[in-house]
Amino acid sequence: MCKLTESRLIFLLLISMVATVCKAAPDKYSIGSSATAEQISGWDIDVRPDGTGLPHGAGSVEDGELIYEEKCASCHGSFGEGMDRWPILAGGEDTLTDDRPEKTVGSYWPFVSTLWDYIHRAMPFLQPQSLVDNEVYALTAYILYLNDLVEDDFTLSRENFTTVKLPNEMAFVDDPRPDVENQRCMQNCRDPESIKITWDSTDLGVTPTEHLQPEAVEDNAVLAAGSPDSGEQTYRTACSVCHDAGAAGAPVAGDKSAWTARLEKGIDVLIEHAINGYQGELGYMPAKGGNPNLEDQQVQEAVDYMIKLVN
């Protein structure tokens, strides 16, 4: 028979209390708030290949062309050919096995949903999530048209969305790596005579190497405001993205006709728009060109530089 003494009973009681207070990690921590259906629907923007996530709506190739010319062509080109280094959207059929493949929506992308989803979440560059759903349908339809995948009278809608297939869908395969096997050889692993230098990086001369020069000033550094070339430097690093090519309706630097009407507003107004941002009929200017770290004076000097180019 076992008879517990009073002190033992108290000891056991204490142990059980300690165990309650200091219990190990729980299954759940009950941290966080329930996400309401309304909160989820505002943030749940993704669209899958099977059409899951698509909102009601529709848009035609014809409507898409107008929006595209206004909001997309300055970077992607009127035919989806891509300006400067901005992405090419159309063409490139049957080039994937070429020496220089051209990977476009038509030649490479696997799913139409990717196009709808990406335009909706990220385009136009500088004004993401500014398009309404029907505009996204119309632009998707138009880019399919640029790739000869639909006719010019086509209208894309949630209902017919999954009937449009991209030609390269079946070319995608899952990751087979490791796909290359090397051996850890230590001695006499190859014939010394067989070693040939096939490429020397200095042949092309395409590396920014200013910083390897003694006492170099680096090209990509933004010069402090007030230094002699800071307006041009700021322009190169912060403004040329749009103002070199006219992206987002930006007046092209050096194009007098594009600047005349704007200059009539007065230089102070232009500087104010450049610093604080401006939505005009012709285009959209993000505050400080999307570079909030610029000082106001740097922006002003960049505007002065651009004005100098047309005077």
Binding site: V47, R48, L96, F111, T114, N168, A171, F172
Partner: peptide
């Protein structure tokens, strides 16, 4: 989801024209 950054980009084009995804 096959979003842009796992289809158009971040996929590996092979010499036979196939493309590896989710690498």
């Amino acid at each position: 989801w096959h979003l842009r950054e796992e289809t158009s980009k971040y996929t590996d084009l092979m010499p036979d024209g196939s493309a590896r995804r989710f690498t």
